[in-house]
Design a protein around this nucleic acid. Structure first.
Length: 414
RNA sequence: GCGGAUGUCGUCAAGUGGUUAAGACCUCGGAUUGUGGUUCCGAUAUACAUGGGUUCGAAUCCCAUUAUCCGCCCCA
């Protein structure tokens, strides 16, 4: 035997047994997002590498070490590690700023990140997300957060925590970073390696370190004072207050987590995550926030924007198991000619139908029917003589003799 | 990139140095002369992750590799 070729590390087949959950997530997304006036957009799986370097940010792990990048015709291309940059590119390229504002888009599809796979983390994974362009007001942030909450509610998830924070604007954030670095300077040598690296690269990320030694340093009064201080400028402060006010109006429960810092460089002001306690260490099902400078950074008009992304595999792992749906009808007959015609008829009136193409004996056909279908449609000599068919409900064994054109009604409610 | 655990048929799983490596489920075929999901029989024709080593002898011990899972990191 030839060597078997297997799926690649961190990738998975989505098999028929699991497909109903995916359809459910996708159909619910379409329904819920459409209800909030979002339209679906589909952008390419690969883009110019530079789009992600500039869009996602070249200090991030995603860009630095997790991208699938390849060369073709002297271009550097990359499999998308997330979809915000791609949607922004499309927004700019297609002149969507001339569309009536706001422009509200949603998407779903595969993303690619070269990481060590573990629970809730794969190299090819799927996200469903939304992006909204043209709203700088706090209503925009709330539009997005409430949409996320509505979607998660629509797919039936409970026990989720919404965490929000504000990163301020570039100006007040810089001041905060400077203060933070100052107060931490004396302890620099006591911090873990990661934190020492973060200290230089992205001081905001220092705060959610899980190492005990670091945590205790962040608990020190003078440090804690800086961390918990309201560093944001009056405008950003007012914006965040409004966001919280509107969330309260909508009765959306949230906690303010000053340590919440999203890993992508483009965020400003409001950031949020939605977490589940039932997921192990990769517990964020949704992450998002405001990114007012990204459109401009990628060469478009200065346009405020806000959005989120959800990990579909993580959502599915929280969903109750779904049984794969059976076929509606299975035609059981010894008469091939009549069977073929009846099968074709049933399919054309919208009843999912299958039959035995190998001319097995009657009992075998019925046995097969009971495994794969909800109803057996029996067409034997007796039925053919009478011009009728028998329909047997395979769950409760009730059988009736009916005319062919009644089959649709029968199968729907019998 | 760094740690830890695991790897026996499509699936679950017994077996810890010694004749043809249990069993269950699934699938397929057959028996019961047009009514199934019960029962019975049979099949899946060289399944012990891979490559070395130790041994008279290894699925069982050792080493390497690989894969999966879990954690760190990071993120959805």
């Amino acid at each position: 035997m030839a060597n078997k070729i297997t799926v690649q590390k961190g990738t998975k087949d989505i098999l028929p047994a699991d497909i109903d959950s995916w359809h459910f997530l996708e159909e619910t997304a379409n329904r819920v997002f459409t209800a909030s006036a979002f339209s679906e957009i589909r952008t390419p799986i690969f883009e110019a590498t530079e789009l992600f370097a500039r869009g996602v940010g070249d200090t991030t792990d995603i860009v630095n070490k997790e991208m699938y990048t390849f060369e073709k015709s002297e271009r550097s291309l990359t499999l998308r590690p997330e979809n915000t940059a791609g949607v922004v590119r499309s927004y700019i390229e297609n002149g969507m700023h001339r569309l009536p504002a706001p422009v509200k888009l949603w998407y779903k599809g595969p993303m690619f990140r070269y990481e060590r796979p573990q629970a809730g983390r794969q190299r090819q994974f799927h996200q469903v997300g939304v992006e909204m362009f043209g709203i700088s007001q706090p209503q925009g942030d709330v539009e997005i957060i409430s949409l996320a909450v509505n979607y998660l509610k629509a797919i039936g998830l409970k026990d989720l925590d919404v965490e929000i924070n504000t990163l301020g604007c570039p100006k007040c954030r810089e001041e905060y970073k400077t203060k933070l670095k100052e107060v931490l300077k004396p302890y620099l040598n006591d911090l873990c390696e990661d934190c020492q690296r973060r200290y230089e690269k992205n001081p905001l990320r220092l705060l959610d370190c899980k190492v005990e030694d670091c945590k205790s340093i962040y608990e020190k009064p003078e440090v804690k004072e800086v961390i918990t201080s309201d560093f944001v400028c009056p405008e950003c402060h007012e914006h965040f207050e409004k966001v919280k006010e509107y969330l309260n109006l909508l009765d959306i429960k949230y906690t303010v987590n000053k340590l919440l810092v999203r890993g992508l460089d483009y965020y400003n002001r409001t950031v949020f995550e939605i977490k589940s306690n039932n997921l192990g260490s990769q517990n964020a099902v949704c992450g998002g926030g405001r990114y007012d400078s990204l459109v401009k950074n990628l060469g478009g008009e200065d346009t405020p924007a806000v959005g989120f992304a959800m990990g579909m595999e993580r959502l599915i792992s929280l969903l109750p198991e779904q049984k794969h749906k059976k076929t509606d009808a299975y035609v059981v007959s010894d008469n091939v000619n009549e069977a073929i015609k009846l099968v074709n008829y049933l399919r054309n009136v919208g009843i999912s139908t299958d039959y035995d193409m190998t001319c097995k004996k009657f009992t075998k056909q019925l046995e097969k029917a009971s495994k794969v279908a909800n109803y057996a449609v029996i067409l034997g000599e007796d039925e053919i003589k009478q011009g009728k068919v028998s329909v047997k409900n395979l769950i409760n064994s009730v059988q009736v003799l009916v005319n062919r054109d009644e089959l649709g009604n029968i199968i729907e409610r019998f």
